[in-house]
Every structure is written in C-alpha cells, then in structure tokens.
Nucleic acid binder design. Structure first.
Length: 600
RNA sequence: GCCCCUGUAGCUCAAUGGAUAGAGCACCGGACUUCUAAUCCGGCGGUUCCGCGUUCGAGUCGCGGCAGGGGCGCCA
C-alpha cells in the first residue's frame, strides 16, 4: 500500500546521505516504527553506514556513530511527499506519515473493495491443496479436524492471494485396516446398523476398533484365543484378496459400508464450510500406480529385485549423498502389489498432467515427512519440474493429556462431540449475556461461535507444534479466541445498524485518537498479511492478524464515541472507520474459515 | 547410528536479522443509568535450554551440546 511512498523516501534518504558527505547506494529497509501514536516507517540504514566505516579502518563505536549519522540525515533530508515529519532516534531514521491523508486512502480502499479488500491480482499459477482426508471406516476425530481446518484456511488464503486453487481430498478407502472393519461387520453386525448419518458412521468406527483387537495378538492371550485370532486374521486377508480380485459380493459389502463413512465425512465437511473440488480415492488410484513402477524401472531410477525382493529406489545413492537422508524407498512389494508411496507417485503424476498443477501442497501430519521427501525426490529424479513446488505442510499431532489418540485403541475425541459441547457452552453463555436473542438467531450464533472457537484454537498455533487437546483451551471464549474477534465484528455491526447509511466519503481532518491511528494502521497491513500467509503457507499469520485487528477495534470502541461524536465530520469519519473495520474483520475471519456473526 | 520437529513469563503460545522480547490464561486491583462488560484499564510476572561463533545488531543465522517428540526396505 505504501510501496511508492517508500520508494520516494529511499531516494530522499540517499540524497540526504550524500549531502552530508557519505554514501549509501543500497535500498534502505523500511520497517514500521514501534507504535507510539504516530504512524510511520523507520530505517536502520545508518547502522549499516557506520558499520561500513568501522570496517574501512576507522575506530568508531558503531551505535554511537549511527546516532550521529541519523541525526545529520534528519536535518538534511527533505520529507518526501506523504510524510510530514522526520526524526532521528537511537540510530534509526524515522519518517512519519501524514495521518489524515492516509487514513482516508486506507478507509476508501476498504469500502470500495468490500469482500475483495486485500485480494491479490491473478497470479496465473495453479495450486492444489490436498487435505481433509481421513480413512473411511474410521472416526473423524479432533486431529482430522485440525487437518481440515488448516487445509481449508490455506486454500482460502492462496485463492484470495490470486492463485488458481483446487481443493483435493484423498481418502484412504481401502487397505487391510478398512477390510478388517468390513470383515467384522459382515461376520458379527450385519443388519444391526443404527439410523442417522453420524450414528452410523461412529457405529462403524466402533466396529473398526473392535475388529482390530480381534485380530491383534497380545501377550496375555490364551492359546485358544491366539488360535482364534490367527483364524480371523486369515479370514480378513482372504477378504482383501477377494476385494483385489473384484469379487462382486465383497465389493458390494465394502461399497455399502464405505458410503456410510463418506456420508458422514461429507456432512462434517459441509458443517465446516468445506467444498472439495476433486476426490481421489485410494481404491481408484491403485490400478495406474502399478504401471508407473515399470516406467521407473525402464528409466533406470528404480531397481527391480523381484522375486527375491521389492522394487526400490536408492535415493541417496542416486543423488550422490554420502550420509543417509532420503534412504531407500520401496515402491512396489515383491508380490507386485502397490504401496502408499506407489499410489502417491501415480497421483502426483496425474495432478501434474491431467490437472496442470504448478504447485502441490499436501496437508498431512508430520509423521509422514520422510514419505513426502522421498516422493518429491523421486518425482525430481523422474524429471517433473513441478517437484520443487511440491510442499508437505506438516502439522503436529493433537494428543490427549494422557497420550496419543488412537483409532485402533478407540481412545479418541470425536469432532462431533467437541462440536456439540461447544454449542452447549455457547448456549449457556447466551442465556447469561443475551437471553433476548430469538430462537433462529440463537441457533445460528451457537454454531458460528462454537465452531469458530474450536477453529481458532487450532489455527492460532504454529502448524509444526503439537496441540494437547483440552476442552477448556479448545473452547475458550475469552481473550485470544474467535469469540473475542467475532465480538468486535458484532459491536461494529451494532453501531452501523444504529448509524443508518454509511456516508459515501468523509475527511479525517481532526485530531485522531491514538486508537484510531492504530486501527487504521492495522487495517492497512491486511493485504501484506494475506500475501505472506499465502506464500509461506501459514494460516497462523492470519489468525494473529485477526486478533490484533479485533483488539485495536475494542480499544477504539472504548476510547471514542462514534455516534455521539463531537461534530458531524468526526461522526462520519468514525462511521466509515467502523465499517472498514467490520469489513476487514469479516474478510480476515473468512480466510480462517470462521463466520462473522451479526449479533451474539 | 542417521534424518526431521520442538525448547521463550507459573501455564498455553506470538515475535520479515532491527528499537525497551509481546499476548492470552491464572493471580491481585479498578471501569457497566453510556454505540452489547464474550469488553476495557492498571499491577504481577523473563539468564528466550546451555556454550561458542557470524553480525553494527541474534529468540531468529552457523557449529557443538542438553532435553522432549516423531521417523528410518516391502504399514499407511
């Protein structure tokens, strides 16, 4: 927003340096001045000049000399247009901005662009974000929710930043685990399924947990139990073989149970506001996967050790590395069946060739880092230039205070349970704070705020940190939380409702309060935050931004009167500022996948 | 053995190599006849795991440790 201005400032700075007999040929770095009620940019360039002098042999104290230079420059520099004051402070040269002019510029910009405020220009590159991909026949727990929320926010960010964006999901709908569940359902529970999408999905997930224990030997099993488990194990493997051979009965059984899971998934995703563009089902990728192995062998990238061993790629050796880093990857079992890596390679090829993807982002938990590093290196060896724009967005686990969640052991916190609890808690608070809310509005707010709180608690932590799930932290409604941000939006809405029409224009030709300047300052940083969060793949930056903005609005709200301002021109300007704040809050929340309520 | 991630206030976490390391929670004390108090103001709280190095300047970069977590040939 201030690039032109700062370019002029850089020229003025260099001229001023020359004026006092020194030289500085680089572009000075301009950083926002730590906020003190005036708005501006400062540069530490004088430190660099002083450091250069010290290097050339002069015996000087660099910080002291920097202060001298900054002071001299401040006297010789002509404030470039758009700035109204110059100041030297502790070696920094600070330029202060003409607050009134820029306040209008920023606010006009927001109110002209509405929902598109902060949107980047089309970049002409296609990015595919792969996320929201639990296995079928399992439960959708809070860890899956972190994945889905992170992926969705990222997709919204890159889309808004100007990338052509495809949302993709790759559910694991086949494999020994899935078939074990199908086996147990068929053997013990067929026809007993309950009604209701979530009930049925969770019931099936319960069978999965039980089925796993039925076939997994444990130390304290008696011999007869061990024999029984061995027999069961054979039955399920038999079933997988039949599935692989395309046995119509097995396929039908699998298809029916799979659909229950997919129905539940679809319901949950729609609750989260997620619309996936492309589904790649693992069961449909297996075919082509086996073909690519032949190609890799022909190209000399892979080595076929069959029948004595699998098909492998010695990645470190191919790259000429002496230390083991990418190691050796197995890309096909010795019996000729595909592995996870085989499928991912085939899928990547399809993404590049069929979907013309330039950048591919995989939102998958951190345990699979090596897997993706291997996949990306093999794609590189294979000759795909897109390989260097493949990125594994690893995120840490959501664990319980007592340890890791495990679907197989059944100690998971289900997303739906957390969601219901969130709604209950919001409802209790509404009883206390706003009991007059109509039933319709109440239902809406309970969803918006409950889900918002949960989403924010997932996005406000850096993705490579683990989250220890705790009900009170995950559903916090005070302080650094979604409801705090949503409440700022609600307060703005409330003022705007009473204000009637928002004036078409207004001049900030009065002494602005510090809180107004800070609020405008933060609004003006929105575009850069979008850009940075999108290019660094960090929704966290937007989460932090939204909080800072809400905080600035709450400060403003308490410090000044909008509707009862001292003069009409001030009232008009503040109404516009309120509207711009509301709009920016709404845009920031939208990019996090959080709704902005009109009341709460 | 090798690779990756993490280590910041009592707790949970922020901080493009820049100015006095910031928030929330918790704790203590204040502000509702006011545009919604899910808010605001004040107080309390720090050897940024340790050491060495690079730099005018390091929580941030490099090297070496320590501690915790994850991963490492036919699971996904």
């Amino acid at each position: 927003m201030f690039e032109d201005l700062l370019a002029d400032a850089s020229v003025a700075f260099r001229l001023a340096v020359e004026e006092i007999g020194l030289t500085y040929s680089e572009d000075p770095d301009w950083v926002p001045i730590p906020f003190k009620g005036k708005w501006g940019f400062g540069t530490p360039a004088c430190f660099q000049i002083a450091a250069a002098e010290a290097k050339s042999g002069k015996k000087i104290n660099v910080p002291q000399r920097a202060e001298e230079i900054a002071s001299l420059v401040s006297k010789s520099i002509l404030p470039p247009s758009g700035f109204d004051a110059v100041e030297a402070e502790r070696g920094y040269l600070n330029l202060f901005i003409q607050t009134r002019t820029y306040a209008e510029h920023v606010i006009d910009n927001v109110l002209e662009n509405h929902d598109d405020f902060g949107k980047g220009k089309k970049i002409g590159e296609r990015v595919m974000v792969e996320y929201a991909q639990p296995n079928t026949h399992h439960s959708f727990h809070i860890g899956h929710a972190r994945n889905a929320m992170l992926g969705e926010s990222l997709a919204r960010l890159v889309e808004f930043a100007g990338f052509d964006t495809i949302r993709a999901s790759y559910p694991g709908d086949i494999g020994l685990g899935v078939i074990t569940c199908v086996w147990a359902y068929d053997k013990f529970y067929r026809g007993q399924e309950p009604e209701g999408i979530h009930k049925k999905g969770q019931w099936l997930a319960g069978i999965y947990t039980e089925a796993t224990s039925l076939v997994t030997p444990s130390d304290d099993d008696s011999e007869s139990t061990l024999n029984e488990k061995a027999a069961y194990d054979e039955e399920r493997r038999d079933l997988l073989k039949k599935w692989d051979d395309g046995d119509p009965q097995v396929r039908a059984l699998w298809g029916e149970t799979r659909q229950w899971s997919l129905d539940e998934l679809s319901e949950i995703l729609s609750l989260l506001g997620i619309e996936i563009d492309v589904y790649f089902y693992e069961s449909e990728v297996i075919g082509p996967a086996k073909e690519i192995v032949d190609e890799l062998i022909t190209l000399g990238i892979a080595e076929d050790e069959r029948p004595d061993g699998p098909v492998i790629v010695r990645i470190d050796e191919k790259l000429g590395l002496t230390k083991e880093k990418y190691r050796t990857a197995v890309i096909l079992r010795s019996d000729g069946t595909a592995l996870y890596l085989t499928n991912d390679l085939a899928l990547a090829k399809e993404k590049f060739e069929k979907y013309s993807v330039d950048r591919s982002i995989y939102v998958v938990d951190v345990r699979q880092s090596l897997h993706f590093q291997q996949a990306f290196k093999i794609l590189e060896l294979w000759g795909f230039p897109q390989a260097q724009y493949c990125r594994h967005l690893a995120y840490g686990f959501v664990t319980l205070p007592e340890g890791a969640m495990s679907a197989r052991r059944g100690n998971v916190v289900l997303f739906m349970d957390v969601y219901e609890e969130a709604k209950r808690r919001v409802s209790n608070i509404i009883n206390e704070k706003n009991p007059d809310l109509s039933e319709d509005q109440r239902e809406k707010v309970v969803h918006q705020v409950g889900l918002g709180a949960l989403t924010y608690s997932m996005l406000a932590v850096d993705n490579n940190k683990d989250i220890i799930f705790n009900w009170d932290d995950a559903l916090s409604f005070d302080g650094h939380s979604a409801p705090y941000i949503q409440n700022a939006h609600v307060r703005a809405m409330s003022i705007l409702r009473r204000a009637g029409d928002v004036p078409g224009g207004a001049s900030f030709n009065y002494d602005l309060d510090e809180t107004e300047i800070e609020l405008i300052d933060i609004i003006s940083r929105f575009q850069n935050t979008v850009k940075k969060a999108a290019t660094e793949y960090k929704p966290l930056l937007m989460a932090t931004y939204a909080y800072d903005l809400a905080k600035a609005f709450h400060h403003f709200y308490h410090a000044v009167r909008v509707l009862q301002a001292d003069a009409d021109n001030i009232r008009d300007a503040r109404i516009r500022l309120t509207d711009a704040s509301r709009q920016t809050l709404a845009n920031a929340l939208r990019l996090l996948g959080i709704e902005a309520p009109e009341m709460m």
